[in-house]
Each structure stands twice: as structure tokens, then as C-alpha cells.
Amino acid sequence: MSASTAIADRATAAAHHPARSRVSARVRGGRFRRFLVPLLLVVLWQAAAQAGLVSSRLLAPPLDIAAAAWTLTASGELPYHLLVSLQRVVAGLAIAITAGVALGLIAGLSRLGEDAVDATLQMLRALPFLALVPLFILWFGIGETTKIALVALGATFPIYLTLFGGIRGVDPKLLEAGRILGLGRAAQIRHIILPSALPQALVGLRYALGTAWLSLVVGEQINATAGIGFLVMDAREFLRTDIIMVGLLVYALLGLGADQLVRALERRALAWRPSLIREA
């Protein structure tokens, strides 16, 4: 962000200030209102099922789904599969973050690194990574490795791209100011380049989490013997739409939870940004 846009931001922040409390009151009220329509839809869905308008073989009614969720949790089945899925995502993401950050730093901080890394990654990125599934199965078999590799591959690109872009987008005026303050290259990277790339890199992390779940869903449908995906595929064999719905719900909640996690991280790491200052 350049100094001049920063000032413009500050000006807008100041301009919005008087209206702030009213707006946030409306948002708080709206938060409950926002759930009204989905709630109504669930009630209608239940009513339709009980009236026999929707076949519960094709789509289980909400109460059945809740019951299935309860049974699966109580039996320990759901927690077990959830843990397996989580392990895959965490392992894949750990690899993706390590690789994405390393490659982003190499390409972002040196022209030589850019020449070595960027073209290759841009080409790989053009390939829809899920198309690599057959190749991965040949290379890694149908075990854990393929699933983790799939998560890792998909999540690496957004982290790499945003970090690279963030590093290259650093305001040259700030670098110049740093130079005249006597900062060496290492200090410039630490105090100027990396902090200025962080907001973008965190957006990349958010994208990475999104692709990670997608890869997980695909990966877990390849002959898995455990995990949420297995639970869903297994339930399909027995036409248990209630369990399938539980699996989908868990995927949704996991995605939501991960997003909240990154948001919390952003609030801490980017406390200096005017929008966040305004909320505080």
C-alpha cells in the first residue's frame, strides 16, 4: 500500500467514523435476521418430508440428519473419520505452506530465483491439478500419500503466487526510505518487504485452505478406508442419505472453521490496517 492511498484510507476512515455505532448496531441485529431464512427453509424441508412431498430415500429430512449425526458421534465413528481427514489436510497444508513460502521467497527476493522457479510453477498452475490424480495413483498408489500429495499440490500455488506478488508489490518509496535509514538488505527484507507482503500472503492462505478441502474431497473418494469421504461413499452403498448429509455438513463446518482461523490470524498480524483499527 502506498503512503498516499494510506492517507486516503485514513480520510475515509475518519469520514465514516460518526456513523460507526449505528452501522454496527444494524449489523448485530442483522446477524440474527440473516439466519431466519435458512432456518425457515429447514423447517419447510422437514414439513415437506413429513407430508410425503420429498422422498426421504433421496433426501433425508433434517431431523433424521440430526439423529444420524448424534448416533455417529456417540459411537465414535464420526470423530475417528474426522480425525483421519484432518490429519490429511494438516499434513498436506504443512507441505504446501513450506513449499509455497520457500518458492515464493526464492522467486520474490531474487531475479535469478524468479527465472529458476516462476516459469515452471506458472506452467504447472495452468494444469488443473486434479487431472493429476491418475498419475499420482500410479506413482504413490491409492494410500495416504496420494491424498496428502493432492492436498499439498493444490494448496501450494495460491501461497506461492500471493507471496511472490506481495513481495514484488512492495512500495519502492518505502524501500528507498529504508535505504536512507541505513537498513541493509537483510533488514529491508525483515522490516519492509515481508511485512508488506503479509496481507496478500494471508489471502493466499485462505485460498489454499479452500483448495485443500476440495482436494481432500476428491482424494477421499479414491478407495479410502477411512475419513469423512469414506463415510460418505460408504453411506451411498446403503442409500443412507442422512449420513451423506452429515458428511457434507462436516465438510462445510471444517471449511468455515478454517476460514475463521485465518481471519483470527489476520486480525492479530494485521492489527495496523485501518479497517481493523476501525473495528477495534
Binding site: A6, L174, L181, A187
Partner: peptide, 19 residues
């Protein structure tokens, strides 16, 4: 400079102490 060129992610005193 004409524009302040402060590092927005460092507190005011830290900007002054930089380097």
C-alpha cells in the same frame, strides 16, 4: 520526504528507531 513514508506495520516509536 513530501509523503511521510512511515512503515504502517510498525508503531510510531519503532519507525523512529528503525535502523
Amino acid at each position: 520526504f513530501q509523503e511521510p513514508r512511515l512503515l504502517p506495520w510498525k508503531k510510531v516509536w519503532h519507525n523512529v528507531a528503525l535502523g
